[in-house]
Design a protein around this nucleic acid. Sequence first.
DNA 1: ACTTAGATTTCGCCG
DNA 2: CGGCGAAGTCTAAGT
Lengths: 227, 227
Amino acid sequence: MRLLVARCEVRYSGRLSAVLPEAKRLLIFKGDGSVLVHADSGGYKPLNWMTPPTAVDFEGDPLERIVVRKRAGTGEDHLEIVIAEVANDVTVELDYESGLEKDGMERHLQEELAARPEALGERLRLVRREWPTDIGPVDLMCRDEVDGWVAVEIKRVGTIEAVEQLTRYLERLRADSATAECRGILAAERIRPQAVTLATPRSIRCVELDLARLRGEREPDLTLFPA
Amino acid sequence: MRLLVARCEVRYSGRLSAVLPEAKRLLIFKGDGSVLVHADSGGYKPLNWMTPPTAVDFEGDPLERIVVRKRAGTGEDHLEIVIAEVANDVTVELDYESGLEKDGMERHLQEELAARPEALGERLRLVRREWPTDIGPVDLMCRDEVDGWVAVEIKRVGTIEAVEQLTRYLERLRADSATAECRGILAAERIRPQAVTLATPRSIRCVELDLARLRGEREPDLTLFPA
DNA sequence: ACTTAGATTTCGCCG
DNA sequence: CGGCGAAGTCTAAGT
């Protein structure tokens, strides 16, 4: 990885066009071909960047110009960095990163609810996860006590969008004679008041869940009475 | 901005939990409070990060541990970096960045279509761009041959979301007696099949456009017969 | 402070 | 490889 701190002008041309006037910035050239142009602000996002695969040309000695080209499927992306002055130039060898384990929220909620759909507050039997419709899969498809169909949409945060999504699924499911009688449940860790407002007149039930408690109920806390 | 290259272990706890085992990485501490942990691969995305506002504590001399805390609205986010060995430690002063001029695709499409709404495939007259409704502006409002209202939503990529957005606009427009008879057109460079599936039964017409060709038709290629 | 819409979104899964 | 949904989405703008 090469780290450059330099006064530079940057021109990007690709899906859009952008020009950064000359200023002192941090340039990162990763081993995989990534190029990042960072300022001291703007948070997590670079001002400009190129994702692999790229071809990077460092021109001039001392460094005068850097050209990054991408042979993307469609049009050619192009990043040009004109160096005015180099304040810092370091090349370092970083370690290889093995995969990092993350703990996705929505996926876990879906796993837990698939295992125990009755956690939704009524006697439900799971028919299948990712029930296919022609506009996308329903997270959980269940049957209730009287064999009525129940489509469950799971989110970390239940927004208006989630209600709209579930509504679309119900629209499609009801158009199918096999699942014509189908109601909907929106399950999430947190549900925004406006989502409830929208869901209620559509007869969509909203259920707030606590993933930790959900897990706890299935695997009771063993530390309560340690040996 | 402080740049650290160090062997370190990173623990994130917040919306999810993640642990990065000890390895040599690049740590960036921006002036705005952002913290980025980058590896030599993985492209534009940091392995871990914190977005502003944060409180950063550098502990120990020599540096032993860095704690980044975020007082977000809801739960507390927490990033802990345990330093094993520092390979590089630089603090640099970068320039302030004035706004960067970007040349968005959607805006250009809107400009072109505003100039020639008939490019949508029927005789349309533009009434106004950014037609206001109480839930946001409609990109283009037009009249067709028989003076019927036509609301046009413009996107680079036409997704289900775009259909939903246009549907909401139409809902509002039809609730207004002045525009009660209003139909919708979704215009985009690319329109996803599922978006068409959703749009069709709602009588929303989908039009795919090529910005380059659109421009070419208005400004014929001058290089054809150079002087 | 909260909500909404856009993004060169990026990323990953599944067909 | 394309399509689609999720993301610790992030970020900027409007209310």
